[in-house]
Amino acid sequence: MIITNIPLVPGKQIVEHYGLVSGSTVRAKHIGRDIMASLKNIIGGELKGYTELLNEARKEALDRMVEQAEKLGANAIINVRFSTSSVAQGAAELYAYGTAVKVE
């Protein structure tokens, strides 16, 4: 599966469009990470626990999008975009969307 965030696949021809595919996940942080993060808030700087958590979550959203594209028979997703929104306190939704296409 080729994933790009530009409206084409360089060096390849788009032969078929399958429309929008998307994947999302809502994640909450767990207490252990939260305690560590609030301790880190005293010193400031990077919160490694959250970085990890969001990376995992974003990977899952991407995987779901890829899964959906595979079901449609696509072999590439172009113009991928991300969006993040906080649904509730301590929970975030990560959303990935793109256009599924077939390239040759």
Binding site: N41, G44, E46, V80
Partner: peptide, 26 residues
């Protein structure tokens, strides 16, 4: 998005990402 060298053959295309969470201190 259009800085691709058309004269050269493309071998692979990857999607890459990086992230970082930073916090304020007191």
């Amino acid at each position: 998005g259009d800085f691709i060298d058309e004269t050269r053959e493309i071998e692979n295309i990857y999607f890459v990402s990086g992230s970082c969470v930073v916090a304020l201190d007191y």
